[in-house]
Amino acid sequence: MSSGARRVLVTGATGFVGTHAIPALRARGFEVHALGRARPEASTVAFHPVDLLDAGAVRAAVQAVRASHLLHLAWYAEPGLYWRAAANLDWVAASLALVRAFREAGGGRAVVAGTCAEYAWGPERLSEDAPCVPATLYGAAKDGTRRILAAYAGETGLSLAWGRLFFLYGPGERPGRLVGDAIRALASGARFATSPGYQRRDFSHVADAAGAFAALVESDVAGPVNVGSGAAVPVRAILERIGALTGRPDLIDFGARPLPASEPAGIEAAVTRLRDAVGFRPRYDLDAGLRQTFAALGPKP
């Protein structure tokens, strides 16, 4: 693959991460082509309407674009439902068909979005070589897809990286996510019921996650790469910061919801590969990211 080949095909371009990935890819000099059912708002993107679950239509579109790079972000992601949904099986098949079509059309570098739910949660700090023993259908579907694609890449010479996403927040959050729900509730004067909040989670601003994927696309790093901040913090501390930003810490009901016994005490990404091999550094720390998110989601003057 020549260094001048700079056409990237993006799925999930209108999603939470994809919306932010487009400008990050453009900033790195890529010509961006989006594949999916909804047209991205960015006017700099070439849009190819297709149902990603239609393997024949996807193959035709991929052959027409003839991209050198692929960033596959699309998956079923309905909050609260995706963990156990049978639709995960559809997306395993769709992902395998997409990557195969991309490679057979001459594509050389593919980056696919995975999840920290592939890991066996338990060790608090998770490196890429930690055991993958997913506890949900979603995690198993992602893990199985990775294993098959890694074997396929080995057989065909495809350069393949797998970005394991940890927890996200930021502008564009759909209802059902912690940070956005808390900001909207407290800013409107509504009470926010939550667990005691002592569990530690690794949260990244979505623009940083998108920037990490763009850097991964441009790199030649292969295999799994954690996409996280590398610094887990108590959920309680995040909500306390949101309470301060909204001026309504009194509306947070800590302990109103029980924390399921299956929830681990901590989930944190080891980000050595992302930092040192890919060369990515995040733009936002937690305080700056929450302020920016509050400015985007909070009340408008």
Rank of each mutant, 00 (worst) to 15 (best):
D143G: 09
G163H: 04
L274R: 05
R201K: 14
R147H: 10
V111M: 05
E240K: 10
D202C: 13
A117V: 06
A117H: 13
S262T: 15
G172I: 14
L98W: 03
E173C: 12
V62C: 03
A61N: 01
D54E: 10
V179K: 08
A24C: 00
W83V: 11
G36K: 06
R146C: 12
A135N: 06
L89P: 00
A190I: 04
A86K: 09
A87Q: 15
L70Q: 05
D250H: 05
P301H: 04
L186V: 09
A67P: 02
L9T: 04
A237C: 05
F30K: 04
R275E: 14
I252G: 03
Y119Q: 11
A161C: 06
G12Q: 01
I22A: 01
G266I: 06
R103G: 10
R66E: 11
A13T: 07
D143P: 00
R273F: 02
T145H: 02
S3P: 04
S68C: 01
V233P: 00
Y76F: 15
A207Y: 00
G170C: 11
T246E: 05
A93K: 14
A97G: 04
R100C: 07
R125N: 07
V62A: 03
V111R: 01
D250N: 08
E263T: 15
A94K: 05
R291H: 13
A214P: 05
A67W: 01
G122K: 13
T272I: 09
A270L: 13
E118S: 14
S43A: 15
G163N: 09
N226H: 13
